[in-house]
Amino acid sequence: MNMVQALNSALDVMMAKDPNVLTFGEDVGYFGGVFRVTEGLQKKYGKTRCFDAPISELGIVGVGIGMAVNGLRPVVEIQFADYIYPAYDQLVSEAARIRYRSVGGYTAPITVRSPYGGGIFGGETHSQSPEALFTHVAGLKTVIPSTPYDAKGLLISAIEANDPVMFFEPKRLYNGPFDGHHERPAVPWSQHPASEVPEGHYTVPLGKAAVVRKGEAVTLLCYGTMVHVARSAAEESGIDAEILDLRTLVPLDLEAIVASVRKTGRCVIVHEATETGGYGGELVALVQKHCFYHLEAPVERVCGFDTPYPHGFEWEYFIGPARVATAMRRVLEG
């Protein structure tokens, strides 16, 4: 399966298993979503379980929260992560805090899916990576898969979680494991081992990172599309990097990070999101707190430049293996 099919399968499995699971959003119903993630679900489960919503993100999320409070497990789609800001108040002030303010009297187990990240010539309104706006919020979980297998297992975990979950889907990975080499022909998922996705129910737990490449020289902390960029950077540079795919940012697998960085003594953090105030800063702080006496060099970040996402400069802006390799070399020299 590619990532779209894997996500579709996760929804299918959960809708078959639990009558309280439903999904809605813009173009989600009859059409099956602009990226086809909900394709066929309305036909299979009926209009009340998979339907179109008005173009109102705050309405979609607010209504989803109300449903979740009343015992359902809504999976809502925000068509692009770039469109999520009208719903920010609902997520930050409401979904994240309903359990807390009611001391568990009410809960809002909503899953918010949203295509995310760059690499598709989406310009400033179809390319953003706003995860840090959500990881900053107490009470929200944030998940970002990098493979079809993880996408399905993590989405099932998100739907089954009794807490609200932000589920960002790197849209450049929907059809293949893009590694930043835009000049090469696109590679489909079918050649990748993680495209082998079981048909039925399985989970990938929230809060567990995956070591996608073992290495000794430097630890690369990354998630989403950058996992594939990091892998190519290691292979092409010949640097024996250990690559951790964080998979969930909240809760974070601190143990796996600490174990790896203490072993390698060096750390580079890679994310698409703009650098200032990005999740990388949080990771730097945690690494220096927990691994300071094991570090051989300053921790480096390779992040999106602090500009809006520029349409005509996709490949100057998008992080490729060369930028990651350069940072690794600096850290190795340090």
Binding site: V61, V63, G66, M67, V69, G71, S93, Y106
Partner: peptide, 21 residues
């Protein structure tokens, strides 16, 4: 319901609650 100090946010939630019913 657990009252929110952010006014009006609970209008759409009430609608969602009713839709679930």
């Amino acid at each position: 319901f657990a009252m929110s100090g952010n006014l009006a946010t609970q209008v759409s939630q009430a609608v969602g609650w009713a839709m679930a019913s």
